[in-house]
Design a protein around this nucleic acid. Structure first.
Lengths: 332, 332
DNA sequence: TTGTAAGCGTTATCAA
DNA sequence: TTGATAACGCTTACAA
């Protein structure tokens, strides 16, 4: 953009203060004067400079978001929910991906200087830096992370659903289990799932790591697992993508799911319903996590709330056919 | 942030100009003075205000990106390539999703006021608005769109690969074809694929629309198609996701792929290689589209180039097993 | 080598 | 109801 408020003022024959008031509706402006101003604005195609406005208002009207990656539906879904609500609230969204990035600290600080607050996924940001951000007074909302002082946290319930899932599997009568996608990078949510499942299954379940939480890694790890000696009767996966990989591996090895091996996921991404067999999983409200994060941030920024909130959204066990036969099968 | 350059200057016992020079390395500063400044900066934990810098420099050091949605790997991949390079070049990325959004015009204009230039996917933005943006001098790079005057365009080759794909299918000896995912919303790239395929196959192929380019829509449309009277011997899909849906539909109907019906996709997303059977497709360099868009924008913004460029990246036919048996099958 | 001061484009206070 | 004018936080001639 190019034309400034001064040119509008000159053309309308008024002061810049009047132009500002006329445009924002703050303070009184004579009807006649407003006309003149609007006409000038129209003719010059004037749009207030975002930089000027922000500097004067002392706010960016923008939110940040920090994620490791955008592979798979999880981050994308949360991000969309976040962006949608942020947009409703008149705030832009500035993104920062950390995967494979060096000097993350600098990038985050730069981001902090561009926004009024930010959403950070799990443990994307190193702990000392988090502490520093909190100390600097940056408004933060963490998604999928354990509560910490000085910032909001927002997550889905894990332990309880994991226990319910494990209990359901046990009812199928299985004896040997594997948890595929062991919590590596201190992902709180995956860790909780593992703890919940193990709480019920005890020594009957062993943890197996995958490099990342992707279809490919799940595929690879499951292949090794299913080919190995003591093949598990059921594989509980950290998330749907890993589970999709496990499904693939089983099929390639000529194993029937759930006949030879049962498989479960987590998240209930779109593909879970369409997988063959349809995936038993735990539904997590991803979109809503993002939407809530945006609202929480807004409350923090506007000052509508000043004490951190820690919200846990409920999840839902979705039993489909990949975990075993059920008495009265209900089509999904 | 809170502390300003004035406080640093006072503490270091110098002027703000000297602080600025010392920090940016512009203009001469005595070693001794620099020391003092850096010390003060350190002690006060000073970071220059992005707003102040931008206002003075006359640039945002930020890029925008406009996409319809983030479902599926395509947009996410391009976005990641874009963000990565933008970040390397010291620019943030501000996102705007248009799907289901009202008043897109206002949103785009707001975005334009926050960035130095932006990437727009295909026909996400209404034509009159595009014209206005061009007129206003906004630096634009379009991805997956036909060339237009006044802006860069960046896309992958479609027609030639579509012809090659069609020719390959014809060699399999198939007679009836369907193109699943007909170009609805004037998506230039899908339209070129359709034109290319039809150019070779002529009357032997019919176009079938899907609501969107998703697994679900592909699944639904393919089910209808395969259940119908004159079932096609091969289904050419607009993209991999639709093809994945078609694969699902075939399996549910007990049809063998490629024995009963051949299926092909487009893009070569990760899942294409892992699908059963592995999907014959056309590889498109999504990440690179994003990366190049970021560089192109940078050239436009810095003034390194002032005439629009229209680049077409090459694609590659990837023959796997979903299109039919091949003499010497090569494992992928 | 350093400092003064004029932008950059707004908003908002305070007089008039 | 309007207009000067002081912020807002920086960069960068231009002078010293």
């Amino acid at each position: 953009m190019d034309v400034t408020i001064y040119e509008v003022a000159k053309r309308a024959g008024v002061s810049i203060a009047t132009v500002s008031r006329a445009l924002r509706g703050t303070g009184p402006v004579a009807a006649r004067t407003r006309e003149k101003v609007l006409k000038a604005v129209e003719e010059l195609n004037f749009t207030p400079s975002r930089l000027g406005v922000s500097l004067a208002e002392g706010r960016h009207a923008a939110n940040g978001v920090v994620f490791p990656d955008l592979a798979g539906p999880y981050y994308a879904e949360v991000l969309l929910g976040y962006e949608e609500v942020a947009s409703e609230l008149g705030r832009s969204v500035v993104i920062l991906s950390t995967k494979g990035r060096t000097r993350v600290g600098d990038l985050i600080k730069d981001l902090a200087g561009r926004v009024d607050g930010m959403l950070i996924f799990g443990h994307t940001v190193p702990e000392p830096l988090v502490a520093e951000l909190v100390r600097l007074g940056v408004r933060l909302v963490f998604v999928s992370r354990d509560p910490l002082p000085g910032a909001d946290t927002l997550r889905s319930e894990n332990t309880g659903s994991a226990r319910a899932l494990a209990a359901h599997l046990r009812e199928h009568g299985y004896e040997r289990y594997a948890f595929l996608g062991a919590p590596l990078t201190s992902r709180d949510d995956v860790d909780e799932r593992w703890q919940g499942v193990r709480g019920v299954l005890g020594g009957a379940i062993e943890a197996v790591a995958t490099g990342q939480y992707t279809v490919e890694c799940g595929h690879e790890a499951a292949t090794k697992l299913l080919k190995g000696a003591g093949r598990p009767r059921a594989i509980v996966c950290s998330d749907d993508e890993v589970a999709l990989g496990a499904l693939l591996a089983a099929e390639e090895l000529g194993l029937d799911v759930p006949g030879d091996v049962a498989v479960t996921g987590w998240d209930d991404i779109m593909a879970a319903r369409h997988a063959r067999p349809a995936l038993t999983t735990v539904r997590q409200p991803m979109r809503e996590l993002g939407a809530r994060a945006a609202r929480a941030l807004d409350e923090l920024i506007t000052g509508a709330r000043d004490t951190p909130s820690h919200i846990v959204l409920t999840t839902e066990l979705v039993v489909r056919s990949s975990c075993g036969q059920h008495p009265q099968e209900v089509p999904t």
